[in-house]
Computed example of a mutant assay.
Amino acid sequence: MDTSFITVDLIRAACQRLGYKFFEYGDYNLNIVGIRTDDDKANTFNDFITVSFKVEGEWRLYVFEATTDPGLYYRLNPMNVLGTAILAAGQHPGAFKLGKHRGLYPALVQAWPLPVHRDNDKDAELDTTGLVDEGWHGINMHHASACWVSKLVDKWSAGCQVLASKADLDFIVGLCRHSTTLYGNSFTYTLLDEQDLMHV
């Protein structure tokens, strides 16, 4: 997927326009920003997770293929009677901390109540217009297959933010570990819609 349009300046401008915090001071002060693209084809890793931060005054930006949406299986078979969870766009202060996904491997795990849309019409279309349910939903940031770069979301996400590649998640976790030594084990997560980047 083409990621050339994603820059630190673009992400920062979008955050500033929306009134969100963008961390510019201090080394390894991580801006973890998801981008939910306009491509709404179900079951694909068609979104991005970005991490931007400064090291000795110089910006670094990393962009990873991911999904910010639940896979088709859970759209058709919700785990919750209210419907499948879709993390609401916006800035979520202190959303994540380092932990283990389902107790199995290092990941970013939910650390604060988060708002999700409940999609309960059991079809392939993503519905972000219905009920908003704020609480502890187990919305983690983790990887899909540990053996290969995944192409289909399927059961890898019931609402989590999921990296297609294990190596990408491991890289993010490594950055977070370093960041915790400076700022503590708490990470803000900002989820933007692609259109947010188009109106800066």
Score class of each variant (00 low, 15 high):
N185F: 03
M79G: 10
K97T: 12
P113L: 09
L131S: 09
G135N: 08
D154I: 05
N77A: 07
V33Y: 06
L10E: 07
M1T: 15
F64P: 04
L108D: 06
T181M: 14
F5E: 15
P93I: 07
F96V: 06
G99H: 00
T67F: 09
A158C: 10
K41L: 13
I6E: 02
V149R: 11
K54W: 06
H178N: 12
M198R: 14
Y189I: 01
L182I: 14
D27R: 00
Y74G: 00
T37H: 01
Y62S: 11
F171H: 11
P78W: 05
V55D: 11
Y74S: 05
I32W: 03
D27E: 09
T181D: 11
R17V: 07
P115Y: 09
L18D: 02
I35K: 04
G19A: 02
V162S: 02
L197C: 09
A107N: 01
R12F: 10
Y183M: 00
F96P: 07
D9K: 15
R17D: 11
V200D: 08
I86C: 08
H92F: 04
I139C: 00
E125K: 15
W156V: 05
Y73D: 10
R118W: 05
M79N: 13
H101D: 00
D47I: 06
S165L: 03
T180C: 07
E24R: 09
F171Y: 14
T7V: 10
V55G: 03
K155W: 08
M141Y: 02
G159N: 01
S150P: 01
Q91G: 04
V55M: 12
